[in-house]
Design a protein around this nucleic acid. Structure first.
Lengths: 138, 138
DNA sequence: CCTTGACTTAGAGTGCGCTCGAACACCTAG
DNA sequence: CTAGGTGTTCGAGCGCACTCTAAGTCAAGG
């Protein structure tokens, strides 16, 4: 598989693939007679995994650590596992943080919703105390 | 309150506070006789809210949109609410994505755990098929 | 009086993760 | 034979969000 094909299949651009190779995230592939990269389909699995690390916020440096360990073979399994566990821990904390912030966001949005309602039903007096609990879920 | 004090209380650096002011995320505060910024404590609420938007991944550009609407007063409430709802939607999707990726990460870690176990109990024959379901939660 | 420390400005520099431009090589189809 | 498409390398450029430097001002304490 040439780089354009791999780009299509992996979702990365050819630029990014070369960049990843340059920094050591992707292995240097075989080259054909005219010097063009020739990829084995198995690289897709690795790229997909990298994508998961990336989309869970792992910085490239840490992916590089992992990639380096991987290249040293099964002797580094324990260390790789530890790396992934540490990462998982961070991601879990991050998710918890996001969820807490979502609650605050919900409250803020409810505030706007209530204000809107006070205007719509505008008439004589302001019904509903400012901190009403009813939220009118959408 | 001067900028150093606000920095301590808000968790931002003075550099960042000036930068936020420069780009319009924070209002230009009053200055004292010698030209130093003098902040009202109420700014802390706003900074905290900005922090939540930021830590849920909202780019500064969008916070600027929100800040601009806010400065135009209550007439923009509906639009602000819409902005926050759109953002909430993205954050929820992002959390869902993270959780999906966490499951894959769990599986990967379990793989390493199983491999480790096969080595520890090493002896004569490899017990356990490679894709054993038991995960030994930690 | 003088030093110290917190402040002011404008503008340059940093780190991350790409993204692209330029100039050139090569293969394939018309 | 030639035009188009895809590839190559190297190095520069970009967008984001800060972060810091330099040179100067100012108020308070010893």
């Amino acid at each position: 598989m040439k780089i354009g094909e791999l780009a299509k299949r992996s979702g990365l651009t050819a630029y990014t693939i070369r960049y990843y190779e340059q920094i050591g995230l992707l292995p240097v592939p075989d080259k054909d007679a005219s010097g063009q990269r020739d990829y084995d389909a198995s690289i897709l699995t690795w790229i997909e995994f990298l994508g998961r690390l990336k989309s869970t916020g792992m910085p490239i440096r840490e992916m590089l650590r992992y990639a380096a360990l991987r290249q040293q073979g099964p002797a580094t399994d324990a260390e790789r596992r530890a790396l992934l566990e540490a990462h998982r821990h961070k991601v879990r904390a991050y998710v918890a943080d996001l969820q807490a912030n979502l609650l605050v966001l919900d409250a803020k949005i409810s505030g706007y919703a209530d204000a809107e309602e006070r205007i719509e039903t505008n008439g004589q007096q302001q019904r509903k105390p400012l901190r009403a609990r009813r939220t009118r879920a959408l």
